[in-house]
Simulated assay, not measured.
Amino acid sequence: MIDPEFWHNKWASNSIGFHLEDVNPLLVQYWPSTKPTREDKVFVPLCGKSEDLVWLATKHEDVQGVELSNIAVRAFFAEHFYTPMVMPINGHTELFQFDELSIYVGDYFSAPIKPVDIVYDRAALVAMPAEMREQYIARLKNLLNPGARILLVTLDYQQDEMVGPPFSVPESEVMHHFSEFKVTKLYRDEANETHPKIAKQGLTRFAEEVYLIEA
Score class of each variant (00 low, 15 high):
137 I>F: 08
196 P>A: 10
31 W>R: 06
35 K>V: 07
183 V>H: 14
180 E>H: 09
52 D>T: 04
65 G>E: 01
88 P>Y: 00
2 I>G: 00
115 P>Y: 05
25 P>Q: 12
155 L>M: 13
57 A>I: 04
6 F>P: 04
199 A>H: 09
39 E>Y: 07
71 I>F: 06
107 D>E: 06
211 Y>Q: 12
155 L>I: 12
114 K>E: 11
12 A>M: 00
12 A>P: 00
163 V>E: 13
2 I>D: 08
92 H>L: 07
99 D>F: 10
182 K>E: 10
41 K>V: 12
140 L>A: 05
130 A>Q: 13
68 L>C: 09
214 E>H: 06
91 G>Y: 01
74 R>Q: 13
200 K>L: 14
76 F>Q: 02
57 A>Q: 05
148 A>F: 10
142 N>Q: 15
201 Q>P: 00
69 S>H: 04
56 L>H: 10
154 T>S: 10
163 V>Q: 13
211 Y>L: 12
194 T>G: 03
21 E>S: 15
49 K>M: 11
111 A>E: 01
79 E>C: 03
189 D>G: 12
21 E>V: 09
195 H>D: 15
71 I>T: 11
140 L>C: 10
64 Q>T: 01
143 L>S: 02
172 S>V: 10
120 Y>H: 10
19 H>T: 03
157 Y>E: 06
141 K>M: 12
46 L>M: 13
143 L>A: 03
50 S>L: 08
79 E>I: 02
50 S>A: 14
155 L>N: 08
170 P>M: 07
65 G>K: 01
215 A>E: 12
71 I>W: 01
34 T>K: 02
70 N>L: 14
86 V>T: 11
136 Y>V: 07
212 L>E: 05
195 H>S: 11
179 S>D: 14
138 A>M: 09
214 E>R: 04
142 N>R: 13
167 F>P: 08
63 V>D: 03
31 W>C: 06
110 S>Q: 08
111 A>F: 00
98 F>Q: 09
41 K>W: 03
